[in-house]
Amino acid sequence: MLYLSNYMKPLFVFLLFCHVASTVKHSLKYFSTSTSGVPNFPEFVAVAMVDEVQAGYCESNMKTPEPRQDWVRDLIKDDPKQLEWYSLQCIRAQHSFRANIDDLKQRLNQTGGIHILQRMSGCEWDDVTGEEIGFNQYGYDGEDFIALDLQTLTWTASKQQAFTTKLRWDADKTRLEDNKHNLINICPNFLKKSLHYGRSFLQRTDLPSVSLLQKTPSSPVSCHATGFYPDRAMMFWRKDGEEVHEDVDHGEILPNHDGSFQMSVDLNLSSVAPEEWRRYDCVFHLSGWKDDIITKLDQAVIRTNRVPGSSSEFPAGLVVGVVVGLLVLLVICITGLFIWRRNNNGFLPVNSKYLK
Rank of each mutant, 00 (worst) to 15 (best):
G227H: 03
A171C: 05
C223V: 06
R107I: 14
W125F: 11
Q106K: 15
N100V: 03
D258N: 14
S260P: 04
R341Y: 10
F163Q: 14
A147Q: 07
S36D: 02
T164L: 10
A273L: 11
D170W: 12
V221L: 02
L267T: 00
D206V: 08
L267C: 05
M234C: 02
C282I: 04
L176S: 04
T111H: 11
E66S: 07
G259Y: 03
V322C: 00
L16P: 07
T35K: 02
V322T: 12
F135C: 01
Y354D: 15
E66P: 00
T295K: 10
L11S: 05
N343K: 11
L167N: 13
L28G: 05
L191A: 11
P10S: 07
Q137W: 04
T129K: 15
K356E: 08
G288K: 02
Y3R: 04
I114F: 01
G122Y: 05
C187Y: 13
V301I: 15
V53D: 00
N6I: 00
G113Y: 02
V221S: 05
Q94C: 05
G321H: 07
V72C: 12
S219M: 04
K105C: 15
K353V: 12
D70P: 06
L108F: 01
F97K: 12
F12T: 14
N268R: 08
I133C: 01
R199E: 12
L4H: 12
S312L: 09
E242M: 15
A233S: 03
S222E: 02
F338D: 11
I91M: 06
D231V: 09
V307Q: 02
T23F: 05
N256R: 07
D144V: 02
L355V: 04
Y140K: 06
R306A: 08
T154Q: 15
R107V: 10
D141H: 06
D298G: 00
L326M: 13
H196I: 00
F261H: 12
L108Y: 04
I302W: 13
A99Q: 05
Q160C: 02
K166V: 15
Q69G: 01
N344W: 09
K215F: 08
Y30R: 11
V350R: 03
D281E: 13
D231F: 03
S22N: 14
M62K: 02
F347Q: 03
G241N: 01
A55C: 14
V38S: 09
P10L: 09
H224W: 11
S270L: 06
H224Q: 14
H250W: 09
Q69E: 15
S209F: 15
S222T: 14
G130F: 07
L286S: 00
T335V: 10
S218Y: 08
Y229D: 06
I339Q: 12
H285Q: 11
S121L: 01
E242I: 13
W125Q: 05
N179L: 13
R232P: 02
L83W: 01
L11V: 15
K77Q: 14
H285T: 10
I293Q: 13
D178W: 13
A55R: 01
W277S: 04
V20S: 05
M235G: 03
F261P: 01
V244I: 08
K239L: 11
D126S: 10
L153H: 03
T33F: 03
Q161T: 01
H285C: 08
V328I: 07
L202H: 00
L297R: 09
K29M: 13
Q54H: 08
L212K: 09
A157P: 01
L167P: 03
L212V: 04
N136M: 11
D258V: 09
D127F: 04
C18I: 08
R168C: 13
